[in-house]
Amino acid sequence: MNKKPQTALIHAPRKAPQYISTVQPPLFRASTIIFNNTDALFNRSWGDDYDYSYGTHGTPTTFTLGDNIAQIEGGAYCLLAPSGLSAINLVNCCFLAQGDEVWVADNIYGPNMEHLRNLQARCGIEVKVYNPLDAETFQPTEKAKLIWLEAAGSVTLEFPDLTGLVKKAKAHSILTALDNTWGAGLAFNAFDFGAEHLSVDMTVHALTKYPSGGGDMLMGSVVTRDKSLHRQLFRMHAIQGISISGDDAAQVQRSLASMQLRYEHQSQSALSLMNWLKQQPEFAQVLHPADPESAGHAYWKEVCRDGHSAGLVSVIFKPEYAMQDIRAFCDALSLFKLGFSWGGPLSLVMLYDLKTMRALQHTHLQQGLLVRFCIGLEHPQDLIQDIENALKQLKRPQIE
């Protein structure tokens, strides 16, 4: 057929071979995917491991990233979402229905709690809160369907009694979902941990953090070893139209090779910072799972046997420092920038008032305002110097 120029631009007469061997896998951008024939069209199944039928279901680029994330976390199946919160919402919408009971740790990631409260108001699920350090506070009824775990906990970084909580959930046939963003699949294997080789049912991971590593991407994942759970999640994933772009997947894939190196460097920097912070008189408490004085340290040591921990450390200022003092401290920092998230090259700082964030009373936490440091790739001595300089800006409290 002799094609007109406009048609030839779309249906080119020649096509370069599609596959070569490269360091990074090829990038596929696709919404429409072309079927070779009607047999391929009508014999496809959304339950296939690699269902190439439409861009939202996946392409070689997104499936490659998903396979790698599943491998890192110790799972078998992975679904990708536009953000960590989107991945969390996928789990909640998939496994919770009217009248169900869901249990969440008191130190759960705040937006997850907001989403669950929204489902409670609109859909009639019941949200129950437990103390992650005490498995006895997890008292499920016959309506309980799901428990959210977080290791370590949001902001205050308590490492939970994973062993006790998972064993209790399994005894009551309750699904376990772990927010594994802190551990990133590197601190411990959530699908094979502890002396009893326990496993959670699924992990959720904000790939925005360590897998991306650049502070410039948003993405989330849900990983499981159970094909039945994966099929349920996959169907909800498709119904909700959840998808990511091939460009974003390729960017995260490119960063995976350096993820463990970055994680270990930031972890070691956080330990150096923790040891220095404990010597500073302005702080009532330093919070880090590897610190023997921090709540949950024994649970961390039990599960994270190689001593791995993320690049996060929090401090509670002595109660005589008011919010205006803590804001002045944060504003005086130079290397630490005010911003949410973590896992990127730039160190970040954020301040919190725990009185507005916790439903339960926690005697292990000192009174005072909290600041969380998220360690980047800078030299730890420079970060220490930055904090030391900012502390000099604080007005010393009057001692009566």
Rank of each mutant, 00 (worst) to 15 (best):
Val155Ile: 15
Met323Ser: 15
Leu218Arg: 03
Pro60Cys: 13
Gly75Met: 04
Ser314Leu: 07
Leu165Val: 12
Lys168Asp: 07
Gln251Tyr: 10
Gly344Asn: 06
Asp382Gly: 05
His362Glu: 04
Ile108Tyr: 04
Phe340Val: 12
Asn92Asp: 12
Thr56Phe: 03
Leu218Cys: 02
Ile34Arg: 14
Ala144Ser: 14
Leu80Glu: 10
Ser21Ala: 09
Lys167Cys: 11
Phe63Trp: 04
Val129Glu: 10
Ser294Arg: 06
Gly220Tyr: 01
Gln381Asn: 09
Gly368Met: 06
Met259Cys: 09
Gln260Glu: 15
Ala171His: 09
Asp201Thr: 11
Gln268Ala: 11
Gln280His: 10
Ile384Pro: 00
Asn389Leu: 09
Gly246Ile: 05
Ile33Arg: 02
Ser83Phe: 01
His308Thr: 00
Lys278Thr: 13
Asp247Thr: 07
Phe63Tyr: 13
Leu157Asp: 08
Pro211Glu: 06
Ile10Gly: 00
Tyr19Glu: 14
Pro211Asn: 02
Leu287Gly: 05
Val371Ala: 08
Arg231Asn: 15
Ser31Trp: 00
Ser347Gly: 13
Tyr52Cys: 07
Glu264Asn: 13
His11Glu: 15
Val313Phe: 03
Gly194Val: 02
Ile125Val: 15
Leu277His: 02
Gly339Pro: 12
Ser245Phe: 04
Val303Gly: 02
Val222His: 05
Leu370Tyr: 03
Asn275Leu: 12
Ala40Arg: 13
Gln98Cys: 10
Leu354His: 12
Asp325Gln: 10
Trp276Gly: 03
Val286Asp: 09
Glu378Asn: 14
Thr64Glu: 07
Gln6Pro: 00
Asp247Trp: 03
Lys143Asn: 13
Asn131His: 09
Ser199Lys: 13
Phe188Trp: 12
Ile399Met: 11
Ala250Met: 08
Ala87Glu: 01
Lys355Asp: 15
Val129Asn: 12
Lys301Gly: 01
Ala30Glu: 04
Gln324Ala: 14
Lys337His: 06
Gln71Tyr: 08
Ile399Leu: 13
Thr61Ser: 12
Arg254Gln: 14
Glu114Ser: 15
Phe159Ser: 06
Arg231Ile: 11
Cys78Glu: 08
Ala152Leu: 03
Leu178Pro: 07
Val102Tyr: 01
Ile147Glu: 03
Cys78His: 13
Gln279Met: 06
Trp148Gly: 07
Leu79Asp: 06
Asn92Gly: 15
Glu73Ile: 06
Asp216Asn: 02
Ser154Leu: 08
Cys304Pro: 12
Phe340Trp: 05
Lys209Arg: 14
Leu146Arg: 08
Leu365Ala: 02
Ser314Cys: 09
Leu261Met: 11
Ala76Ile: 02
Leu80Ala: 11
Leu312Thr: 08
Lys278Ile: 00
Gln268Trp: 07
Tyr210Lys: 05
Glu158Ala: 08
Lys395Pro: 00
Ala332Thr: 09
Asp291Arg: 07
Tyr263Met: 00
Tyr130Gly: 03
Gln366Leu: 05
Lys227Arg: 14
Tyr352His: 15
Met202Glu: 06
Gln232Ile: 00
Ala332Val: 09
Lys301Glu: 10
Gly344Cys: 10
Leu394Tyr: 04
Leu175Thr: 14
Ile239Glu: 15
Ser347Val: 11
Gly110Ala: 15
Thr7Met: 10
Ile316Ala: 07
